[in-house]
Each structure stands twice: as C-alpha cells, then as structure tokens.
C-alpha cells in the first residue's frame, strides 16, 4: 500500500520501518500499563536495533563492491562485539570474555572459513557477511545460554560440588553432570529449530532467497545448509567454551569459586 505513494526505495523503507516502530511503541505502551519494568530495555533495544541495522545497510552498499578480504575484519568485529554482549549478563564467571571469544571464534570462524572454501557460501561479500553473521549470532546466543546455565547449576549445587572435591575428586569430574546440563540447554533451541524447520518457520536465508525470486527448491536445500551449519557452529562453540569455563570456576588449589545460592 505504501508503495503506491512513495517511489523512492529508501524513503519507502524508512516509511515501512516507521510503521513497524509505531506498532512496537504500541507494545511498549501496553507493557507500561502492565508494569513489566521493561520499558527502558525495549526502547533502547528498538532504537539501537533500527539505527544499527540501517547503518549496516548503508555501510554494506559501500563495501559490497570492495575486496573479499574485508570480510575478515568485519566478521572479527562481529565476534568481538558478540563476546562483549555475552559478558554483560554473565559477570560472576572469571574470564567469561576470553572464554566467549575463544568459543565463538572457534565455532563461527571455523565454520565460515570451511563453508567459504567449499563454496557453500558464495565467495562474495553479499553472501559471506550475512551468512557469517548468522553463525556468529547463533554462537553468541548458545554460548551465553550455556554459561548462564552452567553458573546457575553450580550455584545451586555448590554443596554437592564441594562434597565431591572434599572426597578428593578432580574438578572436571565433579562438575561433569552440570556441564552436561549446560551444554544440553544451549543445544535444545537449535535442535527444536531443525525439527520445526519449514513447518513452524521459514528462516531468514530462505525467506531472503524467496523474496528475491530464487528457485524455492534450491532455497530449501540452501536453508538446510545454513541451519545445519549454525548447528555445527553452536556445537563447536559450546563444547570449546565448556572445556574452558570448567577450569575457570576453580582456583589453582581446586577450590570452587562460585558462591552458593540458596534456592
């Protein structure tokens, strides 16, 4: 409907974003009524989201014609930012930033590299950057979920962990059940995602290809490539992170550094 009145594409986009923003503000108004206490987070989220994604859109129009190697610093910036966003919410794990950076770079970095070499990602910036961002984003969320769950498991089972230590058990053995639960918790959304693929949701990559008129059957295959690769990314990230974090929650003398929380 909007397109009948506006023929400049960018102005059209701005108008469409404006409509969405209005709807979102309506939701904010409702949440204020319900006193959910999320007003600030939502407003900041909406504002940041709009500014960031539009800025990136403009930026991409500039660099899509640039050399392929520029994707390396761009993906690195994504990874570092993902690490910082993760640790905002996880303060009580020592070295959470380094663990997250290692896990996310290993998972996302490796998968993006292999996919690009194999040609599963087309070797141009319009493919590497958006698909790469999906890997980094998936790795970031899974890593944060895993760390948060691991911390809360330890805090609520500190007694059992220390009982195990007091019996002379190695820390890795004592935390194994909680590490397993944390990894499972981080993988479940991805497993659900694969199971519901195409039925409950048609994710971004396929939607994009359909919107730009690609062959739907090929788009289907390609969506599986993307979803499967995110799954691999998440798996590598979470496994590397858990191996690293498992050591960080103990001192050199094998003392638990996470304080017990009464539940």
């Amino acid at each position: 409907m909007l397109s009948r009145w506006i023929d400049n594409q960018i102005l059209l986009g701005a108008a469409q974003a404006g409509v969405t923003m209005a709807a979102a503000l309506l939701v904010v108004a409702v949440t204020m009524r319900l006193k959910l206490g999320l007003k600030k987070d939502i407003l900041v989220g909406l504002g940041r989201g709009l500014v960031q994604i539009v800025a990136v859109g403009f930026l991409l129009t500039l660099i899509f014609s640039a050399d392929l190697w520029i994707s390396i610093p761009i993906i690195l910036v994504m990874i570092v930012t993902a690490g910082f966003i993760t640790v905002q919410r996880i303060k009580s794990i020592p070295n959470a930033l380094w663990i997250s950076l290692a896990g996310i770079s290993a998972g996302a970095g490796l998968v993006i590299l292999v996919m690009t070499i194999l040609g599963e990602i087309k070797q141009d910036l319009t493919s590497i950057i958006p698909i790469g961002s999906m890997m980094v984003y998936g790795a970031m969320n899974a890593n944060a979920l895993m760390l948060e769950r691991f911390h809360s498991e330890l805090a609520s089972h500190a007694g059992q962990v220390e009982a195990g230590l007091a019996l002379g058990a190695p820390p890795e053995q004592v935390v194994a059940p909680y590490a397993r639960r944390a990894v499972t918790a981080a993988m479940i959304p991805r497993i659900n995602g694969l199971q519901s693929l195409g039925i409950v949701w048609i994710p971004g990559a396929m939607s994009g290809m359909l919107l730009s008129g690609e062959n739907p059957a090929y788009a289907g295959f390609y969506q599986f490539v993307v979803s499967g690769s995110i799954f691999v990314t998440v798996g590598i990230t979470v496994l590397i992170s858990i191996v690293l974090v498992r050591k960080q929650v103990f001192s050199k003398a094998e003392q638990l550094l996470i304080r017990a929380e009464e539940n």
Binding site: G159, Q160, E162, A163, L165, A166, L167, G168, A169, P170, A253, E254, Q255
Partner: peptide, 17 residues
Amino acid sequence: SRVLRRRLGMVMQQPNL
C-alpha cells in the same frame, strides 16, 4: 589438594549425597 582432602576427610553439615 586431592591428596590432602583424602587425608583430612570432611563430613559436612548437609549430607550432599
């Protein structure tokens, strides 16, 4: 630590089985 903890065995207030 592991050796020490076996030599000085501890029983906590809660069983924590």
